[in-house]
Write a protein that binds this DNA or RNA. Sequence first.
DNA 1: GTGCGCATGTAATCTGTTACATGATTTG
DNA 2: CAAATCATGTAACAGATTACATGCGCAC
Lengths: 174, 174
Amino acid sequence: MKGRDVILGLLLDMPRTGYDINEMFQTVFSHFFSGGYGMIYPTLKKLEIEGKVRKEIVTQEGKPNKHVFYITQEGEMEFQNYLRSEVQTDVFQSDFLVRLYFGRHVSEDELKGWLKEEKQRIAVLADRLDQTNAKWKNNMSDTQKIAYAFGAEMYKAQMKVVERYLKEDNTHVK
Amino acid sequence: MKGRDVILGLLLDMPRTGYDINEMFQTVFSHFFSGGYGMIYPTLKKLEIEGKVRKEIVTQEGKPNKHVFYITQEGEMEFQNYLRSEVQTDVFQSDFLVRLYFGRHVSEDELKGWLKEEKQRIAVLADRLDQTNAKWKNNMSDTQKIAYAFGAEMYKAQMKVVERYLKEDNTHVK
DNA sequence: GTGCGCATGTAATCTGTTACATGATTTG
DNA sequence: CAAATCATGTAACAGATTACATGCGCAC
């Protein structure tokens, strides 16, 4: 799955601007996908050249003009091809775990610091997910609810491990 | 965290070949980091040019010659700088969840197929993690054990969600 | 009058992936 | 005799990130 696949999927649901797409990425997609303007605008441009999307400029008063993108039949075909392609294995990259692995090169205080920081990071992410869910749950499909549940359970699991090791008061954790 | 940081960390623990490094990536690191030869060899080359590592060629009989890499003081400094840099938020990218999000564009059978496939994928990964752990646990540090626990709990959490939705026999899941 | 929300984009760079290319020895 | 293990690498490409660049209106 690449950025373009997700963008096509979002445009299949409804026409959107690059700004709208970014909103989706930063909220509902944030726990399983990441993308920003630097990827969105260039991708929309390429997709337009390829005829997968088309653009309509909506003039607005008091606000910048909107470039609203619509998916075309060719775009829909590409998206359907994506949906039928082989599902790629999830990717998890954790700087935190890499550091833990090399934990013996830092002091116990630094280690504790990492664990506390990680706990805080997870709490913030879990919170954001809950809030996003609260906002959208009324018009979420069952599969979208599974996607949410997946995120919620992952954060819970991560929190559990981090808390376990913090509580154990491993002043000797090493 | 980048590939080079992890490579430097591994070389700080002991001298290794590109092949050895790959072994580590495919086993103990597989649940929180990914890297292969295509990244390892070019990175080692760059690190050598920068004076962060140095190479010794060991001739072997019946086997290809080994290029054993040692970390230098400059390399160690770079690694220490990495350890003191800001911890980056974990990255999770899930093709599976992206598809679920767009689930309404496929049939219920395809959806079920995705869930079953995902269950299978998770089972295989969890199993591999357990086996790797069984093999290494005797010489694992406490922090390395946390890294393992993290992975184990994550797979458990993921499995839980997937199973819940498969068992609910949602012939109408949508 | 400062920062946030709305809104667009480019250019350079980085980093990593994929495919290619080779080849001996050991194990089943 | 086939497959796995050991062992090294390059070239082309893809994909995404970062920094840069702009600008109005509104709320505090």
